[in-house]
Design a protein around this nucleic acid. Structure first.
Lengths: 140, 140
DNA sequence: TATCAAATAAGAATTATTATCATTGTGAGG
DNA sequence: CCTCACAATGATAATAATTCTTATTTGATA
């Protein structure tokens, strides 16, 4: 917990219970939750938190690079405290998002930058499909 | 124009002026427009079209595989009539989306499927950065 | 051409997210 | 340790993209 406070301070952010709760929740899950899901989880221990605070805190964490916002579906954003570049796979049936092992594609990134003249800052790779569990369910 | 009507019929869709207009507009652009942008363009020749019809038509085209919906930002969807798998790069400054050359990654896709047990149906690769034009503008 | 399911237009409703603003809490400096 | 400025929060109104509802119209088939 002290560690998280340190990270926030380094980024010039004030340490508040809400921020600690949100960041620690995100650090301790691999489920890529939505803002709504984060809010629902946090309210269990911190019933007075406001949904607006969750959104603002997430924006703030994204701006300073503490977490990443994933654009995996058009309906809502998912958040990920693992900021090391990695790929995702989403089940279009149950909507769950899973991590994939990191593939080093710095060469591709560089090639893209050279070809387009873009300054490439970020990338997102998502696969879409049906997860084993949903395959089983659907065959019943 | 007759060609588009044929394509719609093959998919079991009724041929309507709205559908012809939307599909033809998407086929003749590389700009990955939003629903709103499509609506604004179409109304110039077809002033009576409804925004709801644009959304429904796009959904319908996506369902039958005629076009693809891109999840590039969390704020809105972009649509692309080029359904051959290819990558995109978006300028986070001017919000424009460009095509990148197709990279054959069927091997990666197969590896992902093997590792995860997913049936992999689709994928999306997006790079984010600053386009040359915006770099110039920002340096002024 | 008559029929009927499918498609459309118009606008209300919904959902995710953002803005507003009064109140509260954090942490730097005394 | 106290105080104060200002950043953060909570409550809720507002917004923007998208979906739903319903009456009406249209395209394809008989």
């Amino acid at each position: 917990m002290k560690e998280i406070a340190e990270i926030l301070k380094e980024k010039g952010l004030k340490v508040t219970p809400q921020r600690l709760a949100i960041y620690s929740m995100l650090k301790n899950t691999t489920s890529h939750p939505t803002a709504e899901k984060i809010y629902n989880t946090i309210t269990q221990c911190n019933p007075s938190i406001s949904l607006a605070t969750v959104y603002k805190t997430l924006d703030c964490f994204v701006s300073c690079g503490l977490i990443k916002e994933l654009n995996i579906t058009c309906e809502y954003s998912n958040y990920d405290a693992n900021t090391i570049n990695h790929q995702h796979i989403m089940c279009t049936c149950c909507k769950r998002v899973f991590d994939l092992d990191t593939i080093d594609d710095s060469a591709i990134k560089k090639a893209v930058a050279n070809k387009t003249g873009f300054i490439v800052n970020d990338e997102q790779v998502v696969f879409y499909g049906i997860c084993p569990e949903c395959q089983k369910k659907n065959s019943n």
